[in-house]
Amino acid sequence: MSYLALERLTKAYGGVLAVEALDLTVARGEFISLLGPSGCGKTTTLQMIAGFVEPTSGRAMLNGTDLFGVQPNKRGLGVVFQSYALFPHVTVAENVAFGLEMRGVPRAEREQRVKQTLDLVGLSGLADRYPRRMSGGQQQRVALARALVIQPAILLLDEPLSNLDAKLREEMQTELRAIQRSVGTTTILVTHDQGEAMALSDRIVIMNKGRVEQIARPDEAYARPASAFVANFLGKTNTLPAKVVNEGGRHVVDIAGFRLPAPGRSPAGPVTVTVRPERISFVDDSALGVRGRVQSRVFQGTHWLFHIETELGALIVLRQNDGAAVPLEGQDVCLAWGENDLLIEASRGV
């Protein structure tokens, strides 16, 4: 049974749909990421769950009760804001103790739980500091501790790591995941960083313009993106216009004259074809592949990145750096891929 269920959750600002009919179920203890480009409605979704934005329509059921019938201060959710939103006028310990005070937890227990939680996030020495006198990473941990200490039903995180530099962000990601695993709190994370979402989550929700594009495990979404948008968002990819034609009962993809059998239930008509750069291989036999010439070759440590001008247009190709020889710039090459490496999607009418 699902722990949190969002049913056709919708928010309209004037005529603009910030979130449109979002359906999502979350299991207890699960780590979910809402991933998407800026303005796609991630924060709005989170704020509706937290109760700071009133939904236009839809339901949210938490453990069988209707969340929208409950005041935001009675929902018992832990929220970590992008800006941290620490209380600047009180110390770290008082920040963390605030939620417990609101719940009438007696002083002794309060102090003990604050100390425990500060230990958990690695801030035991800084209990008496004021937030302004702390680094971004430390403030972020205070915000996390403040949300965790009330043992929230769900932890809602809105881009908590986006203000940190790359190295600290990676450290905090590892730590966040470890803390979430050890405490077991159901967590929803908002981010526009696909690496972060894939690294942390059990499942990711990829959103675009207020709509859900795909909900899947990270590896699944990467391997089998539900749309060209998802494929593009989750990593480098090649997108080509093509059409699917029926040839004697069999579906065939025709990419500018280059034909391949179409996988499974491909729609007939104009389509968009995506193929991941690491799925393209160099072949010797020009009869099998697409001919092209290497425009540039960039060494990226663990792999090589090629830009290749082909009959079908410019393609990018990734080759694992396994020590084997790779083509030179200006060299003529032949490219091939299998039919299962293609993702085919009906073109959105343009």
Binding site: P72, G78, G99, I150
Partner: peptide
């Protein structure tokens, strides 16, 4: 920061 008020509310105030 308007989030600070929301934060307090989410903690039960």
């Amino acid at each position: 920061n308007p989030d600070v008020e929301n934060a307090a509310m989410s903690l039960g105030a």
